[in-house]
């Protein structure tokens, strides 16, 4: 796997109570962290905010400095022609390659829609996506 093929996503633990997300949003603002895309997964009592930041390394350090539980994770960014069909396309490709999608979410990128996909076997996923003729984006392409 070459550098720049995978995107660094920040996963942030959020208490599921009024004001929690707002307080994280305030910290992001105070630390001058700009989010390009994000998605929130919720469960009873807590949630996970998954976000693509401009400068993930710097963002991660500033959040940790403010005692926020944050974990960098690698995700794949795929350029798609149009979102609904696009997600189906990726799901089919990865399904046929027997690769499990942990989660996926979309982003209306500057150069067209992008889908972020989290899988356990990124290398195999990259190969399958490329073999199907789809375009994988690096951090600079976002």
């Amino acid at each position: 796997m070459k550098d720049g093929e995978l995107i660094t996503q920040l996963s942030i633990f959020v208490n599921n109570e009024p004001g929690s997300l707002a307080s994280i949003a305030l910290v992001l603002k105070e630390c001058d962290i700009n989010l390009k895309a994000f998605n929130i997964a919720e469960s009873a009592g807590f949630g996970v905010l998954r976000a693509i930041a401009d400068d993930p390394r710097k963002a991660c350090a500033s959040l940790r400095g403010r005692s926020i539980a944050v974990k960098p994770t690698k995700v794949i960014a795929v350029h798609v022609e149009d979102q609904p069909g696009g997600l189906f396309g990726i799901a089919r490709i990865l399904g046929e390659a027997k690769i499990n999608i942990e989660y996926a979410y979309a982003y209306a990128g500057k150069k067209g829609p992008v889908i972020f996909v989290r899988v356990d076997e990124p290398e195999a996923a990259l190969a399958a996506i490329r073999a199907a003729g789809m375009k994988v984006l690096g951090e600079k392409d976002l």
């Binding site: 996503q9 996963s11 633990f13 997964a41 469960s43 807590f46 996970v48 998954r50 539980a69 944050v70 974990k71 994770t73 942990e102 989660y103 989290r118």
Partner: peptide
């Protein structure tokens, strides 16, 4: 914080 995972399933 070290045990935190981005996967709901782990949590």
């Amino acid at each position: 914080p070290d045990a935190f995972s981005d996967k709901m399933e782990d949590l």
